[in-house]
Design a binder for these strands. Structure first.
Length: 556
RNA sequence: GUCCCCGUAGCUCAACGGAUAGAGCGUAGCCCUGCGAAGGCUGAGAUCGAGGUUCAAUUCCUCGUGGGGACACCA
């Protein structure tokens, strides 16, 4: 990885001017006049030392020059104290070989680059977890794409990742009872056309339950319906959204396995609960929450909170995840302090739990805002959206922006816009790359032959610009895993596509003369080298597409 | 009322406190009898307002303003 190499070199130079370690931050400047890579250490260090930044930069640079002639073409000190680096073509050409060597493993953390930080670490990432009271909404989809891409990236970086989906199907929960009410004809909550037919499909089973004279009839009926609804949702997620979960976790199982009871006992043992107004309260305000929260209602039934605590007890204490990432919709924001309080009460380091909030997309239809309510049955399903614009466009659209963006989503424009979705821009670049290989009159070098071409021939601006952006792939994935920001990867894919299109327009890979015998030796050698470069680009495209969960078409 | 999130080009979105704020779409112009024009090139075009911290603020702090969300013994 070029960036970390520069980092090492700069750190070394820093030691000449600074005793205690000081981390050098290397970044890629937006403007190419400021180099391929740049650092602001001198500015930082100067601040700490109250020294002149320009002089500091100069001093560091002098130390750099002693040892690094073979890496940098140019090192420049720029006001107010940046140090800018230009990489030698040979370094890029070497990195290109690295891509060809590692192939789809290129960019993964290796022992050299710090795999110890990730190897064996268990991360659980829980997302979508839609209530089994109706189909998936667009909001669920957004969280789904985000979680899936993030999980892919974490896995790529060597973490042991478990993707999990929690189903709130507890028989004694309010929503399931509400659903059951609708199922027994006593209510209309969640009622849609789809639910109606599900109820009628299950009418025999419902009748049977009714005849049994059970205590919690509505809960039982609701649970039955929830199971059906969830079955549909799961099928949709796996088949249409193409998201594979490692585990489907049912809330009801926490009761069946007495996990809820055990968790409650833990709290009691630690003296963290008390009775008030007939309800059982958790002293969550002692752990940073605004107020105490009810665990068991005065009617004797647990709130949603208690089984959720049991669930997180299971995540941390039973399954021993080193890190848990929960991805929730913005409407659950106020719930975070409560859960964090619970985690702290368990004696778990609260930093081990990260809750990522995905903001709700603001839907516009016919020029008017479209208010979503699952309870009222007014929402736009993810299924509708996918039907309209297709999976790739939908995924890319959501993955391009940060989860905390309040997106505006105009459904009327969705289809029209989808044709202009940047995903096609990126896919088209990959298609062009593959097309070159297909159309080549000389056989593209494969396997070990690829490493035997003359890499020095790849020396035009376009060649080198392309290699340079390919070489940034490892930096981007690692950063994405660190910051949990898959949107950076999506943005990078656009940048790469742009660079590839540019290369395609300006540098011919397979010339016309290859069709006949007039092709000269030099021409053939250059073509071979370029064909190898194109294959490297395809490797990176493949990697990105698989991380983002987007297909890589051969033709469009 | 209190708390959280957001306000960037005409539109949808980017930008660990860094330099001349980036893309895509739209828009004005140019480029296909040579790897697919779903493309390339050249333009025009933006940080909600007021203070503050900093060598440096879209980013951090305060106040205001506009929008979204949350403030249950719902989930």
């Amino acid at each position: 990885m070029i960036k970390s190499e520069i980092q090492k070199i700069v750190s070394k130079a820093l030691r000449q001017v600074q005793d205690k370690p000081f981390e050098a931050e290397i970044f890629v400047p937006e403007n190419e006049n400021f180099g391929h890579y740049s650092t602001n250490v001198a500015l930082r260090l100067a601040k700490e030392r109250k020294a002149n930044p320009m002089q500091m930069a100069q001093k560091i640079t002098d130390n750099l020059r002693l040892t690094t002639d073979n890496i940098f073409e140019k090192i420049e000190v720029a006001a107010p104290g940046f140090i800018n680096f230009w990489i030698k073509p040979e370094v890029l050409q070497k990195e290109l070989k690295e891509i060809l060597n590692k192939k789809e493993k290129y960019g993964r953390l290796t022992l050299m680059s710090g795999v110890r930080q990730t190897q064996g670490k268990k991360i659980q990432i829980e997302f979508i977890s839609a209530n089994p009271t109706g189909p998936l909404t667009i909001g669920n989809g957004r969280g789904g794409f985000f979680g899936d891409a993030l999980a892919n990236v974490l896995k790529f970086n060597g973490y042991n990742v478990v993707k999990e989906y929690y189903i709130n199907d507890a028989k004694n929960s309010t929503q399931i009872k509400e659903l059951g009410k609708t199922g027994t004809g006593k209510g209309t909550t969640y009622l849609t056309k789809n639910l109606k037919s599900q109820i009628s499909n299950l009418k025999n089973k419902i009748k049977k339950l009714k005849s049994k004279n059970i205590l919690n009839l509505e809960g039982e009926v609701g649970h039955l319906l929830a199971k059906e609804i969830h079955k549909d949702n799961q099928k949709f997620i796996e088949k249409i959204l193409k998201i594979k979960f490692d585990k489907w976790f049912f809330e009801q199982s926490l009761y069946d396995k007495s996990s809820v009871e055990k968790t409650l006992n833990e709290f009691k043992k630690k003296n963290l609960v008390y009775k008030k107004d007939g309800a059982l309260w958790f002293k969550s305000s002692k752990f940073g929450d605004l107020e105490d929260r009810v665990l068991i209602r005065s009617a004797g039934e647990p709130t949603y909170f208690l089984p959720d605590l049991a669930y997180h007890w299971d995540k941390f204490k039973i399954r021993k995840f080193n890190k848990v990432i929960d991805i929730w919709g913005a409407d659950h924001h106020g719930y975070i302090p409560r859960l964090k309080a619970g985690i702290k009460a368990f004696g778990i380091e609260p930093g081990k739990l990260t809750v990522i909030i995905t903001q709700l997309a603001r839907l516009v239809k016919g020029g008017k805002e479209f208010k979503i309510s699952k309870r009222k049955g007014t929402y736009v399903t993810m299924e509708d959206l996918i039907k309209e614009i297709g999976l790739d466009a939908a995924r890319f659209f959501f993955l391009m922006s940060a989860p905390d963006t309040h997106m505006n989503f105009d459904l009327d424009l969705a289809k029209e816009k989808s044709m202009k979705n940047p995903v096609y821009y990126v896919q088209y670049a990959a298609v062009r790359a593959q097309s070159i290989l297909r159309k080549s009159k000389i056989n593209p070098p494969v396997g070990g032959q690829m490493l035997k071409v003359d890499f020095n021939l790849l020396n035009t601006k376009e060649d080198l610009d392309l290699i340079r952006i390919l070489a940034r792939f490892p930096e981007i994935v690692q950063e994405t895993a660190l910051k949990y920001n898959p949107q950076a990867l999506a943005r990078y894919s656009i940048e790469l596509a742009k660079q590839f299109h540019n290369f395609y327009e300006k540098e011919r890979v397979i010339g016309p003369s290859f069709a006949d015998a007039t092709a000269g030796r030099e021409e053939k050698e250059l073509a071979a080298a370029r064909l190898v470069l194109v294959q490297a680009a395809i490797i990176i495209f493949k990697n990105i597409f698989s991380l983002l969960g987007i297909s890589m078409p051969k033709k469009m």
